[in-house]
Design a protein around this nucleic acid. Structure first.
Lengths: 179, 179
DNA sequence: CTGTTACCGCACACTATGTTCTGTATCTAT
DNA sequence: ATAGATACAGAACATAGTGTGCGGTAACAG
């Protein structure tokens, strides 16, 4: 990827994140982002088709990191091979904590729901591998609840209670959801 | 309230609901609603300031019914005095089932999240009265999870699994969430 | 019967969007 | 180092949707 492209892409992302801290997503216009990033109009549209695509791209960039397995070895926390489901969850929470600053803005207002929707998609894959469901409950229901409760946990944590540790959050989650 | 006003309001609501079954909320324009309802442009704006206000008004109209206590006496189900929390929940599920047709369209796409956000506001009040939280878990966390899990339950139920009875749904919920 | 109110429908200013074009700067490969 | 490709700036443009304003008509309430 061209250096100029990376630079512009980065300018747009940071402008977008910065604006999210003062403006709501829907009230924010493409023009606002262009002005904040200080780039040409056509340049923006060369990178992203719409404002929604920009949001999606930013979310994906964050999740690529949060759910990446490559980074495990680089970690100082010893979750090299996720023996238990709880370890895997705690590990994801650690990664989310690292990206806290980037994520915080995304929670504000309407795009918080978009962020959490994308988060759920990734979580669904992780949970699908580990979850064991009681036989008197439909599996897809249990999945939905487990994922929704976890994404709500993340929202609660990073939006005003970020002083708790990943381990504590993990404990809260597993004591509240019966899976 | 004037008969003409009620008529127009109703026309707008039904037009909006009808459109939601073919178009997504964001792609839907005020003009679309006006055309579908077959009313004048200025008439729409005399009733609702924005599209969002319309959505809000529709949600509120539904919830006013679902969470109303007056209707209890009219019910054939005997939940006259909600002795237990579970009874109260089951009762709400019955009311949601009645409004199923109106609600179904609201789940599609982006406005589903708006609907669920408003639903959560009402649920928060109900849960706040009944919930008893373990002392090693923050109360506001437990509340958030309980409410989020229930709203997700409602989404799952009405969006593709509406063949289950309110009692079954209630059981699923209380077996999955540990409160 | 009369004053009030809601509606129609048309027009208008305004804002944001997405595209297109030309010239310039920056990168890449031979 | 030079040549061709690519990304960017800046401006112009058509398009579409928004919200408001006004005169005329029909329905309502007392």
């Amino acid at each position: 990827m061209d250096r100029r492209q990376r630079r512009t892409r980065s300018l747009i992302f940071t402008a977008f994140s910065t604006l999210l801290e003062r403006k709501s997503y829907t009230s924010m216009t493409v023009q606002d982002i262009i002005d904040e990033a200080d780039i040409g109009r056509s340049t923006f549209y060369a990178h992203f088709e719409t404002k929604d695509e920009l949001l999606k791209a930013l979310c994906i960039e964050i999740f690529e990191h949060v759910f990446s397995d490559e980074l495990l070895s680089e970690e100082n926390h010893d979750f090299s091979h996720h023996s238990t489901f709880k370890d895997r969850i705690t590990h994801i929470l650690y990664h989310l904590q690292e990206k806290q600053q980037s994520i915080k803005g995304l929670f504000s207002g309407e795009c918080g729901e978009v962020f959490l929707r994308y988060l759920k998609e990734y979580l669904y894959c992780v949970f699908d591998e580990h979850i064991i469901v009681k036989d008197n409950i439909p599996r897809d229901y249990a999945m939905d609840i487990a994922v929704a409760a976890f994404s709500e946990t993340v929202r609660w944590w990073l939006k005003g209670h970020s002083d708790y540790t990943p381990e504590e959050i993990s404990r809260f989650y597993f004591e509240s959801v019966d899976i």
